[in-house]
Design a protein around this nucleic acid. Structure first.
Lengths: 114, 114
DNA sequence: TCTCTTTGCATAGACGAACTATGGAAGTGG
DNA sequence: CCACTTCCATAGTTCGTCTATGCAAAGAGA
């Protein structure tokens, strides 16, 4: 079907993807495809994680020791790679959350001025 | 003095710079240096606009007709290029504001889940 | 049985925004 | 006169995200 793709200016605000993934995994270990669906669902389709963004991000996080990966069988009986937060990953989530709220606060101070 | 630069992970969240500039100019026409100072001051040094980010951004906005530029004399008696919002620029500010709040709302929905 | 859809992983290459690092010039104050 | 601040600007790098593409296996339906 392909739905025409309106030149989608998707543009999830960058620098936030890893935080969203970490948060998602803090709830429950999940495979890549599931992570993407979870984020898309919760955000009511506003945030769409492309596979070309997701898997490289997971690779980076794996290399940095923030998640660990293991092959299991998904709920749909397919072979899937499940990611789990490490201690370092949990810590990183905290770091990114506070960084994000600091940034957001700063932006708001600029945007709220009359 | 150079203050050592702690490998500054500056990382203003990308995609936001133009919005901040537009907002600043919506208050008052200003030159580049002044824009940077204004944003830095209001954000209490959290957001530092580098010159290598600022001037290319202003150029892009100029080309797209969102601002217009004219050489004047600054308050410090120096020759400076003052930027003024165009109608298109004001409209763009609205677009970016709503996009930003939509994005932020979506991120929050993901981040607030237990 | 065969084909289509969904699920699921993954990489290569393009793209663009922001950064680092420079450069210059002109006014001000000690 | 020399340092510092103000002010502009660009070249080149870096890095994250997107587009495009490939593969493969399970289940549904014809």
């Amino acid at each position: 079907m392909k739905e025409a793709k309106t030149k989608s200016k998707n543009e999830l605000l960058p620098g936030t993807l890893e935080m969203l993934i970490l948060k998602t995994l803090s709830i429950e270990s999940m495979h890549g495809y599931g992570i993407a669906q979870h984020i898309r669902m919760l955000s009511a389709d506003v945030l769409t994680i492309e596979e070309g963004s997701l898997y490289p991000a997971l690779q980076r996080m794996l290399v940095k020791g923030r998640v660990l990966a293991e092959w299991r069988i998904s709920a749909n009986n397919r072979r899937a790679r499940f990611y789990t937060l490490t201690t370092a990953g949990k810590k990183q989530l905290g770091v990114e959350e506070s960084r994000f709220s600091q940034m957001f606060g700063a932006i708001m101070r600029v945007m709220k001025t009359t």
